[in-house]
Amino acid sequence: MEQDALKSAWQQAGSRPGAMQHIPAAGRSFPPALKAIRRQLLVESLGYAAFLLMYYDFFDGREKPFYLNALLVLCISLMLLHNIAGYLLIKNPVKAGNLKQSLTLYLQRVRQFSVVSLLSRLLGISGLLLFFLAQITWSATKYWILAGVLLFLGIQLFSLYRVWSGRIGQISSIVKDLDAA
């Protein structure tokens, strides 16, 4: 009798009018994390665009050689493209035949993107530093300031590496758990 009631409930599931209305905008809304990433991408993009519009006058771009101006624009564009690629990686998860295959492919994409992330950050910061440090008259104090900036940037890159290692470790452990199951 108990199985008949369960079977009957299963067959009637979703047949009530309005049964699916309690799910708000199913398939049309984005997860909160994705909204936060999209908002961050918008703010950073506006910041990069504002910087590119103002650097020529505010940071004496007209007095610097063309190759430094081109390098700066390229580095800012690289950082912007990196942010867009990260957003697309998160927004479009891999959909394979089953959950294990999907996570395995996603893990591969995240590993690749982590390398791209670290390299693009390093190249972007290097380009910015080259632009701003190109025509400085150096003194001992300025070398110490540069050493402090480089140390700070090294700590940032190491922290970024640790964040990516943690994310990859979490996904790897899930894939291992699925292998064991």
Rank of each mutant, 00 (worst) to 15 (best):
R38W: 12
R38K: 14
R39P: 01
R39A: 15
Q40G: 04
L42I: 11
L42A: 09
V43C: 00
V43K: 01
L46M: 12
L46S: 03
L46W: 02
L46G: 04
Y48V: 08
A50R: 04
F51Y: 10
L52E: 04
L53I: 13
M54C: 15
Y55A: 09
Y55H: 15
Y56W: 09
D57Q: 04
K64I: 09
P65Y: 05
Y67R: 03
Y67L: 06
L71D: 13
V73W: 00
L74A: 15
L78S: 09
M79R: 11
L81N: 13
H82S: 03
N83S: 15
N83I: 05
I84P: 01
L88C: 07
N98H: 14
L99C: 03
K100W: 02
K100L: 11
S102K: 07
T104Q: 14
T104L: 08
L105R: 11
L105F: 13
Y106H: 08
L107G: 08
L107A: 09
V110W: 02
Q112R: 15
S114T: 05
V116T: 07
V116C: 13
L118G: 09
L118P: 00
L118D: 02
S120L: 10
R121N: 14
L122C: 12
L122R: 09
I125K: 12
G127F: 01
G127K: 01
L128K: 05
L128A: 14
L129G: 10
L130N: 09
L130I: 11
I136C: 07
